[in-house]
Structures are given as structure tokens and as C-alpha cells.
Amino acid sequence: MHGSPDSITAIETPPDSDVEKDIKVKNLTSLESETSGKQKLCSWLNKNFKIEMTDGRVLIGVFLCTDRDGNIILGSCGEYLKPEDVGVMEEPRILGLVMVPGRHIVSIHLDDTGYSGETM
């Protein structure tokens, strides 16, 4: 029976042209690059981030996610005022869950101060 679901028809495909091979290699390289970027982001999940903003404030919290626009979501976040104005790191203002707009981010660092946003 022709066209039945049980019949299999072999279709010969022409060999890949050089252009098609180049496109496949570029796509593979792009995917590898994308994968390494995703791996780096995944390695930062649930780590403490220190974000300096354009207005001088410093936010320290747990990195939860980001988006294509560079916005970042921090959990258990604390806000510090400009450290140079105060002279020493003061007690944070507890914010909790925060979305930091990417356009206001000056720098991002993994934070090793041990602040977790929780009060003792």
C-alpha cells in the first residue's frame, strides 16, 4: 500500500555544499559559545553578588536570574549607601527581592563578605 504509515521511502539528499558546511560550523561555534555562557551563568546561581549602581548605591544579594536586557534579580538583598560618603560599611537597608535594571549597573562582583541578607 503506497503512502501507508508503515512504508518507508528513502530520499537521497545531495552532499553538503561548502556554504552549507560553513553555516553548520558557524552555528555549532555559536551554540558552543552560548552553552559556555549559560554554564557560567548557572555557576553563579545562588552566589552572593555585589552590584554597584550609577547613583553610588551598592546592593549585595543572592543572584537568582538575569534577562536579555541585563536586568538582574537578587534575593535577600541589602542596600548600602555610597561607602566613600560614610567612610565605613554601615548596616544595610534590607530590601529582600530586587530587580536591578541593567542600565543602572556600573559593576558586578562575586561578593565574599559573607552577607546573606538575613539578620542574626
Rank of each mutant, 00 (worst) to 15 (best):
M1C: 12
M1P: 13
M1G: 15
G3D: 12
S4Y: 06
S4I: 04
P5C: 09
P5N: 14
D6C: 09
I8Y: 07
T9D: 10
A10N: 09
A10W: 07
I11D: 04
I11A: 06
E12A: 12
T13Q: 11
T13I: 14
P15E: 00
D16C: 01
S17G: 02
S17Y: 00
V19S: 07
E20M: 05
K21N: 04
K21T: 05
K21F: 02
D22W: 02
V25K: 11
K26Y: 01
K26I: 03
N27V: 04
E32M: 07
E32W: 01
T35I: 03
K38C: 06
Q39N: 13
K40Q: 11
L41F: 07
C42W: 11
C42S: 14
S43T: 10
N46K: 12
K47F: 07
N48P: 13
F49M: 09
F49D: 02
F49R: 04
K50R: 15
K50M: 15
I51S: 00
E52D: 11
E52W: 09
E52I: 13
E52V: 15
T54C: 10
V62L: 11
V62F: 05
F63P: 01
L64E: 12
D67V: 00
N71T: 00
S76P: 01
S76K: 09
S76E: 14
C77Q: 01
E79V: 09
E84N: 15
V86L: 14
E90D: 13
R93C: 12
R93E: 15
G96D: 03
V98K: 08
P101I: 05
P101L: 08
P101K: 13
G102H: 04
G102R: 03
R103I: 15
H104Y: 08
S107Y: 08
I108W: 02
I108Q: 05
I108L: 09
T113S: 15
S116V: 05
G117L: 01
G117H: 01
T119S: 13
M120N: 14
